[in-house]
């Protein structure tokens, strides 16, 4: 568990530092990824840039591309309103890209959570069973939904934070 928490913490550092200086982050992203990773994570807990789907999920792949964390975007959490229940996937469940791996209920509405990448669920965020409303507070950090051991690459359109923001502003 400790290792997982450190991944989550590192992920938060990454997203908050990206938010503070988005342009610098974008510039460095492709040119010197190794340096960025080393500076932020001192080695093992490195993650790749968070990517967003048109269904308003995000995934964050580990540097080696073998595992990922999945959640719903801040935009989605806000649009859904007060979340009263989150249906989490079962650990060890095998999923294919495009499958529903859970659902969120808010104000009498059920919305599927889809995974853009296939694999096996290795961990779910049990804290959301106790307090589903937490997902409205920190959907892209502490209130992640599930972790997967991935197989293959994400399918469908995956967007960077900037592209996703533009996408939600269009909608």
């Amino acid at each position: 568990m400790a290792a997982h928490f450190s991944v989550a913490r590192a992920a938060r550092q990454l997203s908050s530092s990206a938010a503070r200086r988005p342009s610098a982050f974008v510039c460095q992203r492709w040119q010197r990824p190794a340096i960025v990773e080393r500076r932020l994570f001192s080695g093992s807990a490195a993650v790749r840039e968070k990517k967003y789907t048109e269904d308003h999920e995000w995934i964050e792949l580990s540097a080696d591309g073998k595992t990922c964390t999945l959640g719903i975007s801040e935009y989605a959490a806000k649009a859904l309103g007060d979340v009263v229940y989150i249906e989490l996937p079962q650990v060890e469940m095998d999923v294919a890209a495009g499958d529903a791996i859970g659902a969120v209920e808010s104000v009498k509405s059920a919305s599927d959570i889809l995974t853009p990448i296939g694999g096996t669920v290795t961990e779910v965020n049990d804290a959301l069973q106790e307090k589903p409303g937490q997902i409205n507070k920190d959907p892209e950090g502490e209130s992640w939904i599930a972790r997967l051991k991935v197989e293959g690459e994400p399918e469908g359109k995956m967007m960077s934070k900037e592209e996703y923001t533009a996408f939600t502003e269009e909608a």
Binding site: E54, D55, H56, V107, K108, S109, A110, S111, D112
Partner: peptide
């Protein structure tokens, strides 16, 4: 009474 199902 109302209920909803949302997709993308």
């Amino acid at each position: 009474g109302s209920a909803y199902k949302l997709t993308r």
